[in-house]
Amino acid sequence: MDTRLKQEQASIRKTPARKRSSSRDKGSLGERLFQIFNICFFIGMGLTTLIPFVNLIAKSFSSEAAVVSGSVNLFPIGFQIGTYRYVLQDILFIQSFRTSVIVTVLGTLLGLLFTTLTAYPLSKLRLRGRKWFLLYFIFTMLFSGGLIPTYLLMQELKLVNSIGVLFLPGMVNIFYLLLIKNYFEGLPESLEESAKIDGAGHLRILVSIVLPLSLPVLATIGLFFAVQYWNDYFAAMIYISNPEIKPLQLFLKEMLVASSNDFLKDRVDAALNTTPQSIQAASILLATLPILLVYPFLQKYFVKGVLIGSVKG
């Protein structure tokens, strides 16, 4: 997921450059060669990430016999959709899907809310003790209590084995907080002053002036949050043993691990019940699709982000 993100960021950075070069007609021979090389290189890079995915799609639609003998490449062999029917009826998949959606939606909304509300005052130079507050937050980014003390804390907070443990502890993400804070600091002071002259209070300035101007960074951070929550399995692995509230990634991971040879050693009964590879492929695909679908909708904020200017003249 991260590489895809980087590529997108790279493509954003490239956009203005491409526009410039096309308006300047064709460049010199060297420049054109470089362009051709560039295009080939990035197509190659794109394919290396795309092909495994296509292979996965092909496997999920192929018959198990074809998958086992490794003959499925880019196109399905022995087409069937029974795998999808199976996965969509699988109670474990449905439960995990529900958990992941709840965690991602609530986690992203709450994360954005609290991180923004913390970042805003910290972006104001006149805040008294700002440096100490910042240090206080950054400290937690660098040092933590360790796994067992954190577990005990969650236990005391009665969060163990509840869905809240998956998003409540991470509502304020310090790294994202710094990103948002820096963005806020980049907004011109004069905007705020002009709003003040019009009689706006702090909340009004934040909601009506600052946030609308910060949509690019909010969209980015929102996506970071969403991807982070959607992909997280570690917290669930540690804190959750009730299968009803295991998120999707943990479900997937466990499905794959449970089919591996190390796990099946000496467990004949488990070996008799392994998940067929085509069903594994379908589950992975269905679990990845939702978060993939989020990207196109947020794309426009990424592109706009760099271009937005707030103060004219």
Partner: peptide, 19 residues
């Protein structure tokens, strides 16, 4: 019924026992 995870099961078990 509760299940240990498929991976890192020993760590999880130790957590439960330590706790």
């Amino acid at each position: 019924y509760e299940m240990l995870p498929a991976e890192n099961f020993d760590e999880k078990l130790n957590l439960l026992v330590a706790n």
